[in-house]
């Protein structure tokens, strides 16, 4: 069995004529927590959508367990997605269902388990994210961090092989952030899963990720372990890690001269 669960080769993708990805290569190893980092609009979330088969690449390939995702028909894609769990940026909880029903949703849709087993499983998943006591609440009664944890419980409801996280730290307070960091690592190791995190939070990601890809200008600008990237001399990586205002990613968006715009 190959060590790589997901392979992305020479991937190009774009909306319209403009290419967002211009030949991306990535490999995600089994059992590891990998992160995709980069500035806003660099196409990080799009990579997750390509892995999940929600969109098709212009060229190149994305394969999961050796199967090319975009070559599958709808039932093939659904079969692959049953191996995946995804945490959306704002949780994407079903607002008309309670916390309990949200976590039970994938079990009810994909299994014929009796209600008492579903109840036990839901409470176990909620316990894993520390929210067993909140099972009766509705999504509107949850804080941002709690909603993210419920969504995580729902993402791992069917014990997926792959867990994808889209901006899991966005808008969270430091305590919730630390909780989510800890959960990502713990759940990955406990379930023997492979995790992919899309984020631009440097400190949190560098503290627990095994491998990191930096995406910029449609290509992988740098990759390596957190230690290797910390020591990197690449200007883009240095600017990103140390939050420098100016560098290869300019402060100003390209524009005509200041004087001509102000008619001076």
């Amino acid at each position: 069995m190959s060590d790589n669960l997901i392979n992305i080769q020479n991937l190009t993708f774009g909306y319209g004529k403009e290419l967002l990805h211009k030949g991306i290569n990535m490999e995600f190893q089994r059992g590891k927590v990998s992160a995709i980092m980069g500035g806003s609009g660099s196409g990080k979330t799009t990579i997750l959508k390509l892995i999940g088969g929600q969109i098709k690449p212009n060229s190149g390939s994305v394969s999961v367990e050796g199967e090319i995702v975009h070559d599958q028909n709808l039932s093939g894609i659904y079969k692959l997605r049953r191996k995946m769990g995804m945490l959306f940026q704002h949780g994407a909880l079903f607002t008309d269902l309670s916390v309990y029903e949200n976590v039970a949703f994938p079990m009810r849709e994909h299994t014929d388990l009796p209600e008492n087993i579903i109840k036990d499983l839901v409470l176990m998943k909620l316990n894993a994210v520390g929210l067993r006591g909140a099972y009766k609440l509705m999504p509107t009664e949850l804080s941002g961090g709690m909603a993210r944890r419920v969504a995580l419980a729902r993402a791992i409801a069917l014990d997926p092989d792959i867990i994808m996280y889209d901006e899991p730290f966005a808008g969270l307070d430091p305590i919730s952030m630390a909780v989510i960091c800890d959960l990502i690592r713990t759940l990955n190791d406990a379930l023997g899963a492979t995790s992919i995190i899309v984020t631009h939070d440097v400190a949190e990601t560098f503290s627990f990720a095994d491998y990191i890809y930096f995406v910029a200008d449609g290509v992988v600008a740098a990759e390596g372990s957190p230690k290797q990237l910390m020591a990197s001399k690449l200007p883009f990586v240095k600017q990103f890690i140390h939050s420098e205002k100016d560098g290869p990613v300019p402060f100003h968006v390209s524009a005509p001269s200041y004087n001509s715009d102000l008619a001076l």
């Binding site: 997605r81 995804m86 959306f88 994407a92 607002t95 949703f105 849709e109 994909h110 969504a151």
Partner: peptide, 22 residues
């Protein structure tokens, strides 16, 4: 429309549940 805006339909798709049917 709100289910779409809050990614609930995408979440359903990613759970291998067809939003049109469900």
């Amino acid at each position: 429309g709100l289910m779409k805006a809050t990614e609930q339909l995408s979440a359903m798709e990613m759970m291998a549940v067809n939003p049109v049917g469900r």
